[in-house]
Structures are given as structure tokens and as C-alpha cells.
């Protein structure tokens, strides 16, 4: 067992973990952060995407011990109280989800995309979420959601949102 200190969605945790514990399993099973889900074994699907120190990672392909001393943000930590993150709102308003299983990872990947490219083209959006698989939507409405969020985030703030 290795002791880790990690901040997740604004709260600090100290835990003992086995080195082999994947970050996603730590989040789900030790912290109860079950909003982040597991969809595959090979880091293809991206359902488990979270932000580690501000960058998107696939939490099934990071060890929990590697998050020691780091800040993790999950789908459960991006809304401002009752106010949805613009990306969450956009996924809702553009019907960018159906079953919702890929949605946490898709939203986290999309936020990361806009952080690096606030005004992406359709092609750049599709490229930016290529590591996240959705089986329900055919992606058209996800692309629209990211476009909507990009518009709102660039018009309502000057970088604070990202």
C-alpha cells in the first residue's frame, strides 16, 4: 500500500492504495465518485476521462499513485453549484447524449479541447474528441454541443471559464 494525497473536485483526500489501483477505480470505489465510468480495457473509449492537473487523461490508464500530490477534476466537479458548466448545458440543449454513459468523458474531453482551442472548426472538434467513443448519437449533436459551448464560453468570459 502507498499513501497518496490528492485533491478531487476541490476536496482533499488521504488514502492508502495498492500501486496497481487505477485512478478510475480509486475515484469510483474509494471516493464514491461514480460519475466517472469505465468503458474499456485499452484506453480506446475515453468514458473515464478526467482532468489531472488541468489536462484531460484517461483515468483507466493512470495509476492512482500517480495522482499523488495532484488535482483531479471529474464530471462531478465542473458545475458551479447549481449552475451547470457551459459544456454540460450545451450537451443538454443540443441533445448531445442519449444513454449518457460516454457523456462524462465526452464532456471532460470537450472542455479540454476548448481550453487549447477556444474556437475550433467542426473538423477540429471531431479531432479533439476522437479518443472518446459514443455508440448512441453518431456524434453530430455532440459536435453541435461543443460549438455552442465554444460560442458561449468565448462570449461570456475572457478566459476565466476555461
Amino acid at each position: 500500500m502507498t499513501q497518496i494525497n490528492v485533491r478531487v473536485d476541490g476536496a482533499s483526500y488521504v488514502d492508502d492504495v495498492e500501486p496497481r489501483t487505477l485512478l478510475v477505480h480509486y475515484l469510483r470505489e474509494q471516493l464514491g465518485k461514480v460519475g466517472t465510468v469505465v468503458g474499456c480495457d485499452t484506453s480506446n473509449c475515453g468514458a473515464c476521462t478526467v482532468h489531472l492537473d488541468g489536462e484531460s487523461v484517461k483515468s483507466c490508464t493512470v495509476l492512482a499513485v500517480q495522482a499523488d500530490g495532484s488535482e483531479v477534476t471529474t464530471i462531478e466537479g465542473i458545475a458551479d453549484g447549481a449552475t451547470l458548466h457551459p459544456m454540460q448545458k450545451a450537451f443538454h440543449e443540443q441533445h448531445g447524449l442519449q444513454c449518457g454513459y460516454c457523456t462524462p468523458g465526452m464532456i471532460m474531453a470537450s472542455i479540454d479541447l476548448l481550453k487549447n482551442n477556444p474556437n475550433p472548426s467542426e473538423h477540429e472538434i471531431r479531432e479533439g474528441i476522437e479518443g472518446n467513443l459514443c455508440r448512441c448519437t453518431g456524434y453530430v449533436n455532440i459536435v453541435r454541443a461543443v460549438q455552442q459551448a465554444a460560442g458561449e464560453m468565448s462570449s461570456t468570459t475572457t478566459g476565466a471559464q476555461a
Binding site: 469510483r28 465518485k33 461514480v34 460519475g35 466517472t36 465510468v37 469505465v38 471529474t74 464530471i75 462531478e76 458545475a79 451547470l84 454540460q88 450537451f91 443538454h92 440543449e93 441533445h95 447524449l97 444513454c99 449518457g100 454513459y101 457523456t103 462524462p104 464532456i107
Partner: peptide, 18 residues
């Protein structure tokens, strides 16, 4: 707009594995 979305976009979901 869908009623279902509220929990799905915030991670307040109820998957069996949870």
C-alpha cells in the same frame, strides 16, 4: 429538452456498477 439529462451530464448517475 430531455428530462433524463440532468443526472447524466453531472455524473449523478445510477449505473448498476455503482
Amino acid at each position: 429538452l430531455r428530462k433524463e439529462d440532468g443526472r447524466l451530464i453531472t455524473g449523478k448517475t445510477n449505473w448498476t456498477d455503482n
